[in-house]
């Protein structure tokens, strides 16, 4: 019996995406843990450390919430990488590739699933932020623009995760990445002002893509920003767009190249 020709990318992607929803329905505990982890970080920093951190121009939570939002989006890299690595390792990707589907639907579905879960995570974080006393002061358009920038960063990290997941194919590299994201996270303006860091470290922190998104989101929410005279801090909005676009320009071709190379190994 011959299976019918593929009706196209959209249908295949929808079927693949439904698989992601089925995973969530099967593992509500894991989903909850994923959603709660950034909230826990927020609570820890606001209540455990925030009291000891004197910041000029506002309350610590007003600095922190936009920072943790950017951090959560960047850390999404891990989730994408883990999901992809599992499919590669279990041979599931091979089975998908032997099916009469549009091959790229697998990658598009991964993107859709992860973007939906990140949007949900963002919503939970915003509510948690409101609960710890954070507020936004600009209009809904600015707020939506902030959310847009955050999701743009997530999309860039998603494709970095796809590339790394295809590259690794095994869980070992995932663990390495899960450790390495931490220094990258702290070497940014997420938790504290880069001007308090040793000079050259501070300069790197200013240029961290996470810092750019965090600073731009602070602006758009009308939250205070760290005092800084660095060029990167002055042009946060520009960098918050430019960084993810640049990362996408690098990682999408890398991921697609790796995808095409699956047929050679």
């Amino acid at each position: 019996m011959t299976a019918p020709a593929s009706p196209g990318l959209v249908t295949d992607t929808l079927i693949m995406t439904r698989r992601g929803f089925a995973h969530w329905a099967r593992r509500p505990g894991a989903v909850a843990t994923e959603l709660i982890f950034p909230v826990m970080m927020l609570v820890m920093f606001v209540y455990f450390l925030g009291g000891g951190l004197a910041v000029e121009g506002g309350d610590y939570e007003d600095f922190l919430v936009p920072g943790i939002l950017a951090l959560t989006m960047a850390f999404g890299l891990e989730g994408t990488m883990v999901a992809l690595t599992q499919d590669v390792e279990r041979g599931l990707l091979d089975r998908f590739r032997s099916l009469p589907i549009v091959p790229s639907s697998f990658l598009v579905a991964r993107s859709v699933i992860d973007m939906i879960s990140s949007a949900a995570s963002l919503l939970v974080m915003l509510v948690a932020g409101l609960l710890v006393g954070w507020r936004w002061h600009e209009g809904p358009v600015s707020a939506l623009a902030a959310v847009g920038l955050l999701l743009l960063l997530r999309l860039a990290m998603l494709w970095a995760g796809i590339w790394l997941g295809l590259l690794a194919g095994r869980p070992e590299l995932v663990q390495t990445i899960q450790i390495l994201v931490w220094p990258v996270a702290f070497l940014s303006s997420v938790f504290t002002s880069p001007s308090t860091m040793p000079g050259w470290l501070g300069a790197i922190a200013e240029w961290n893509p996470m810092s750019a998104t965090a600073a731009a989101v602070r602006d758009l929410f009308g939250n205070p920003s760290w005092a800084s005279d660095a060029w990167a801090a002055d042009h946060a909005l520009l960098l918050a767009v430019a960084w993810p676009v640049l990362l996408l320009a690098v990682f999408v071709p890398l991921a697609l190249h790796r995808w095409a190379r699956l047929s050679d190994h």
Binding site: R19, A22, H23, R26, Q86, L92
Partner: peptide, 9 residues
Amino acid sequence: QHAALDEGL
């Protein structure tokens, strides 16, 4: 060679 299944389903 290896059961290529979705273990989450």
